[in-house]
Structure formats: C-alpha cells, structure tokens
Simulated scan of single mutants.
Amino acid sequence: MSTHTKNLKTTLSSVLLAGACSLALTMSATAAPATAKTAISQSVSKSAPVFYGDGGKYPFSDAVRVGDTLYMSGQIGFKDGKLVKGGIKAETKQALDNIHATLLQYGYQKTNIIKCSAMLTDMDDFGDFNKVYQTELAKPYPVRSAFGVAELAAGASVEIECMAAK
C-alpha cells in the first residue's frame, strides 16, 4: 500500500470517527430525561390547538385557539347566508361584524385583535375600505396587510382575516 493511500485512509478514518462522535454528542445533548419529557408533554397539551365551529358546509373551522391566541378564518360580507348589497363599504362593515361575532362567541373582544389581513378584488376600493375599517376598530389599530386579489368566494369584494390575543 502506498504512503498516499495510507494517509488517505487515516484521514478518512479520522473524519468518520469525528463525525460519529459529533453525532453521538448531539444526540445525547438533545435527549431529555424522562421527567423533562413529561413536563414537555404537559406544557404542549396546555397550548394544543382547540378548533371551534365546523365551517358549516365548508371544509374549515371558524377559529382555532392556541394558548391565548385566536386565529380566525377569513370573513366576507355574508349575512343570513347571502352577500350583503351595497358594495365595498357594506361588505367591509358586515365582514367586520362577522369577525366581532366570532370574537364574542369565543370570549374575545375587538380590542384583542392583533393582526388582520385584508383581500380586495379592486384596490381602487382601498380608501372606502379604510374608512369603514377605521370606524369599526379603534387605536391602537392591529397590524395589517392588504392584498389585491383576482376574485374572492361568492363574488365578494373584500375578505378579512384576523388574529386576536389576550
């Protein structure tokens, strides 16, 4: 066997041994003793998701609570199973009323809202949307994103999705 081959074998063996030792140390460092594992399981179960509502005929939940945070499905301007008439202002008002009803149903208030996302089919409606949004929510306003989209369910002009926390 040549000196070059012996050196290569020695180097490879050292690298493999170092890698195996590193892996063993990593595994032992991240392994939790049985008592810590039990504590972790208990804390996870306290913050396990709780799903609310069945979405009716649609495949989603109305809201999901994780810890003290409530994640709500998007709302459009539906009332009594139909999209309200009156355009962006009426739809925005109804969508926010629907959000408020969901909040109350699960023990939250409008003041608990921390984040909203708004989807509008016509960004020219942004000013009218903001006027209604401003009258329905108070300072400090939740953080918000707004997106222009091609279309929304049921021909809606706006959909609003929020998160709330206590």
Score class of each variant (00 low, 15 high):
124 D>G: 15
23 L>N: 03
39 A>F: 05
156 A>G: 02
1 M>H: 09
134 Q>R: 10
22 S>Q: 08
29 A>D: 11
82 K>Q: 12
108 Y>R: 01
39 A>Q: 14
164 A>D: 10
150 A>V: 13
8 L>R: 13
77 G>D: 14
80 D>G: 03
31 A>F: 05
127 G>M: 07
73 S>N: 13
40 I>Q: 09
61 S>K: 01
152 L>E: 05
73 S>A: 15
90 A>F: 02
75 Q>R: 10
105 Q>T: 14
131 K>L: 08
133 Y>G: 06
120 L>P: 08
123 M>S: 08
163 M>F: 06
28 S>P: 00
142 P>S: 07
110 K>V: 05
30 T>S: 11
120 L>M: 07
103 L>E: 11
165 A>S: 15
41 S>P: 00
1 M>Q: 08
44 V>C: 07
63 A>K: 01
149 V>A: 07
48 A>L: 08
22 S>Y: 07
125 D>R: 02
13 S>D: 14
37 K>E: 15
109 Q>D: 15
73 S>I: 10
86 G>C: 05
161 E>H: 03
36 A>W: 03
36 A>L: 09
5 T>D: 15
64 V>R: 02
54 D>V: 02
79 K>G: 00
17 L>F: 09
57 K>D: 12
25 L>P: 00
2 S>F: 02
62 D>M: 01
47 S>V: 15
13 S>P: 00
40 I>D: 06
143 V>E: 15
106 Y>T: 06
50 V>Q: 13
138 A>W: 04
135 T>P: 00
162 C>F: 06
59 P>L: 05
69 T>D: 08
57 K>M: 05
130 N>S: 11
105 Q>M: 05
